[in-house]
Design a protein around this nucleic acid. Structure first.
Lengths: 364, 364
DNA sequence: GAGGGCATTGTTAACGTTCACAGTCTTGCC
DNA sequence: GGCAAGACTGTGAACGTTAACAATGCCCTC
């Protein structure tokens, strides 16, 4: 603002930016390179795209000209004519949470390794319209394909009305209509947790669940219930949470009030498990001596909870990599492929927060 | 793969996708709309861009045609001619960490609210070349501006050689050469934490620091050291960590071994503080009765640590919003502006992990 | 040495939009 | 009724790349 009369983008810091023969200030284009190299712009294009049938000597001359002019290819123009932007879209919900953040991270890594860029839309609230809008925006922006991290039922439904012909992969998207899906085996993971607790001699296992709209929450409930039912144990009413530590704390207070009756809890994620642990500690209930707690996710903190949390690990990295593989296959096929379903196994992680049923507990 | 002879993108699910008069399968373009509305393509463009001087009746006819054909504007073609993509780039390091994840999230929200899309590059490792490459890639992709979440010294240095003429804002970027910077006041935050502990009667305060390359770690050390020095207290050698709970745990073991001498610790982030708490718990050292612990960040979990963690809150949302404001100002000015510096204040959050100096402690 | 094939290069036309300018049609005023 | 100003609309040319095809030169074979 205090400069000499608004330099009007003529910033001539000696940035070493080479200029062509003409005194243009606009960045050089293919035609400029062609002129310098003494070839046609098409030959420049061929060199850039690694076409065969370019004489080695010509290639060298072109590369030299590119170097001399500091030429950089204009991807926008390229995208216009090829109809491919080499960009992928990602729609996700609250990328602040550990799970989505990790998934998106590995998606980005995998995409970039394959030469694709990633545009992100993070949704604050989840509803069908919001997801649909995000998909439309991304389609308008010309992405070649979209990964939808759609862990809610309502988000998964929005996949029914996606832009025609757009390659899409749903992560944690449940049995969404036509689209391919990559997800962690929530049901099996929940089974592992519940079986572990039963194996330790507990009569039954209580459950603090995630929000009812979430498919993951649903899967974890299903696995937990399956095991209890199969073992002929009573199935207590789940206490609902919303993934937050606070909601776990609230549930923990209620569990504490039932201590003696309750000896084992499977909590649907580690953050809520932290809240449960806190509530139990406050009420003077020792974990695992009086009550066993198992979480889900294996966030980096879990190992250092008091006590270290027994939990179920999700391999978010594998989920991200797999989803990109599937998506790129669709994009490269350039036509509808049979829908794929991939399930990444969950892994049980035993630590110190679950142990044998306390002797004093009443067997009913 | 098992379909009838490769439908070749002719998926005729009755998607309600309206088609033009011709039997083209390609999406309609402006010229198609113009034909249907009986106007020129330029008039369609004017309607779309809210130009004045379009008769109301004409506008209605054009909008009707757009609706009928299901026309969607091609942003790539638009970007080619306008030289503006309405897309921003974000370069960040390990978006799995709470701080970067929150910052990137709020950047994305703010950008989208302003009508911009966001392309992300997450760096796995930080070095000058990596950051420079990321900047170049994004510039090639035609973003209108870039936010660099550059909390490391080496990343901040890479800002010295960024693409000429590209608007850039550094988040947590320290005193990076020419570019505008938005950051949280790390030094003041660390002061608050340290002063609080001194106010509680502790003779001095130990410190578990972040990795030395990080500017944030440096700022927190500076604030901590300032306060101790100003108060004439001994300044213990900081124990280094790497932000991870595990490194906090390791530091915590060492602190536990010195219990009695050490009565107060300021830990550079909440995750490491968790590790410290765990180590102290294992060694039977009660917090805060025997040792006070203060963290930094106020992650959602902190409130539910045992004991709930006294810490310093960073308003990542404000940082993200502010950085987008600054960046958009630069972009809209379309020329170099005076560099800006914005500092977001940190907020002290008192909980239960810090208390008065234990009586038994030796005053040296 | 003629002809076919291949390697190599050039020419022209898209891609779908916006910009610059040139028209045409109103409208109001004298 | 004529005229000018302004409202409205159309025409042609970019933007920078790739695709499609044509053209050239060379080598090898017969």
């Amino acid at each position: 603002m205090s400069e000499q009369g608004k330099p009007e983008q003529g910033n001539e810091l000696g940035k070493g930016q080479p200029v062509g023969s003409t005194s243009e200030r606009r960045p050089p284009v293919m035609a400029d390179v062609a002129r310098v190299a003494g070839v046609s712009h098409q030959t420049v294009s061929r060199v850039l795209n690694d076409h065969l049938n370019v004489r080695a000597e010509t290639r060298i001359r072109v590369l030299a000209a590119i170097d001399q002019l500091g030429y950089r290819r204009n991807f926008v123009a390229r995208a216009l004519v090829t109809r491919h932007s080499r960009r992928l879209g990602v729609v996700s919900f609250d990328t602040t949470l550990y799970g989505p953040a990790s998934t998106v991270y590995s998606i980005e890594q995998a995409a970039r390794a394959a030469g694709y860029f990633v545009s992100i839309v993070s949704l604050r609230t989840i509803d069908r319209a919001g997801v649909r809008d995000a998909l439309d925006y991304l389609a308008d922006q010309g992405v070649d394909g979209i990964v939808v991290v759609a862990p809610q039922r309502s988000a998964a439904q929005a996949l029914d009305d996606l832009p025609a012909g757009m390659p899409v992969v749903a992560v944690e998207g449940g049995h969404a209509g036509d689209v391919s899906v990559v997800s962690v085996d929530q049901v099996a993971g929940a089974r592992l947790a519940t079986e572990h607790l039963l194996d330790l001699g507990h009569d039954t296992v209580w459950h603090v669940s995630g929000p009812s709209d979430w498919l993951e929450a649903e899967g974890r409930i299903a696995g937990w219930r399956d095991v209890l039912t199969a073992a002929g144990r009573p199935v207590p009413e789940p206490l609902d949470g919303d993934w937050s530590p606070r909601s776990g704390y609230v549930a923990g207070r209620r569990l504490a009030a039932m201590a003696g009756d309750v000896t084992a809890v499977f909590v649907a994620n580690d953050q809520m498990a932290l809240g449960v642990l806190r509530a139990l500690t406050e009420e003077g209930i020792r974990v695992p001596e009086q009550m066993s707690v198992v979480g889900f996710d294996d966030i980096p903190e879990s190992e250092f909870f008091s006590p270290p949390l027994t939990t179920v690990r999700q391999d978010f990295g594998a989920v991200g990599r797999c989803s990109i593989e599937v998506l790129l296959r669709q994009i490269e096929a350039d036509g509808p492929l049979a829908r794929e379903r991939h399930v990444v196994p969950a892994e049980f992680v035993a630590r110190a927060s679950a142990s044998r049923r306390p002797d004093g507990a009443v067997r009913n």
